[in-house]
Design a binder for these strands. Structure first.
Lengths: 230, 230
DNA sequence: CGATTGTCAATTGTCGACAATCGACAAATT
DNA sequence: AATTTGTCGATTGTCGACAATTGACAATCG
């Protein structure tokens, strides 16, 4: 996340990590649907690798909560229940609130500037109507919030939560109302941080997150996509 | 954690999980010191198994933050810096506060009763002077707090944090002051929950945790045990 | 002598093959 | 016919061997 961007560097990650990236992206993007079984032999053949690194990647994914491994039974993409989503967003709210409080405590104008710049980009994208870009920047915004908190363990925890949030957002049928409104919603939070008004910032971020979380959870069909067999 | 305790059940976990338990216990108990390298061949030979399940167990541990895997370089027990400890306890405080708020929101007397019972046992152990037992029950108390919050994702997050807390407690030279005082400290928290006094309970739990965290962090020698090579 | 380059041992990464386990279905027994 | 028992195919779990990569040290060159 804080790559020094040293130019001239070829990727030589172990196979398991590249496999991990591919599978994670497939799940988080919704390409692999919740409940879908992941048969090791098939995937290994499909990727043209052996099962060893694949298995290690699957272990990783199970720790990230994206898949469920049942010994001797197999691996499936973890089903997403409504309760899961509620838990996801409630914990997310807690983590972001914590990050926000730390940022305010640091009281560094540079931080606010970064957040504000992120906001500007989001607004610009919204005004052009680029929904996908808005969502990406929105994600960047919240990642940045965590990153600025300077808390490694929080960041690590956030990363696993964030993945599943992405998955949820990829799977729901986007009820995207006013796109620019999405961007506008972030401004008060930034301002509250800038004024070091912790109670206000806390209230705003919690409303911001839980409102979107509730919206998604309410509309969630449990067990929505019976996989294409039946 | 919520085992139905069906009698008559032989353990048939995959090898990797048994290995995982063994290694985790070794690290968390302080038997494996931070920074200590974990050479796959050696450990596999020592356990009389092949490297495949061992590697999968090591992957697990790296996700739990107990070891650090560097590709092609090897695995070491993750060093514990003072910053790590501060982060650990601050996040712990956040998580427990969240759990506590949820418990209060549930408003079920049964929960308070369970906590109180846990407290009674701790007090009894303290009065007998059984430090080890007090620590175990203390851990149970905080696990129970999380468990009662009825939040699966929180519980999962807690478990990884909790492991490292155990590790820290195993590694420090116990400055155990008044043992009974440790037990007494928990009572006000329980009472605050019983009276649904959220602000008070929140304040108490945060003081409870951060005080012990600060105490440990202050006394922490960074890079303490140069392994016996020099 | 300092810096660069080549070589090597140690360790991890990957593979293919074999063993163990599970659920489901068939067969047998009452 | 219902229940138990046996068998089977599919899939995961484990193993041992081989390939790839790293850092350290030695050899070479200026």
């Amino acid at each position: 996340m804080t790559q020094p961007s040293n130019s001239l560097h070829i990727e030589n990650k172990p196979l398991r990590e590249r496999v991990l990236d591919v599978l994670r992206e497939a799940i988080v993007s919704g390409e692999f649907k919740p409940g879908q079984p992941l048969v090791e032999m098939d995937i290994a053949a499909q990727l043209g690798i052996s099962r060893a690194p694949l298995r290690e990647a699957l272990q990783f994914l199970s720790h990230e909560g994206l898949v469920e491994v049942t010994p001797y039974r197999g691996t499936v993409v973890k089903p997403l229940t409504r309760t899961d989503i509620e838990e996801l967003y409630s914990l997310r709210s807690v983590l972001e609130t914590f990050a926000l409080q730390r940022i305010i405590a640091q009281n560094q104008p540079e931080n606010v500037a970064q957040l504000r710049q992120c906001y500007e980009e989001m607004l610009a994208a919204a005004q052009v109507g680029d929904l996908k870009l808005v969502n990406n920047i929105d994600r960047q915004f919240h990642d940045l919030l965590i990153d600025l908190s300077q808390h490694g363990l929080l960041t690590a925890t956030w990363n696993t939560v964030s993945l599943r949030v992405r998955q949820v957002m990829a799977l729901r049928n986007r009820k995207n109302r006013d796109i620019t409104q999405i961007a506008y919603n972030h401004l008060p939070i930034i301002e509250a941080i800038g004024q070091a008004d912790e109670p206000l910032a806390t209230r705003l971020i919690q409303e911001h997150i839980s409102s979107s979380g509730d919206l998604i959870a309410e509309l969630w069909d449990d067990v929505p996509p019976e996989d294409g067999q039946s």
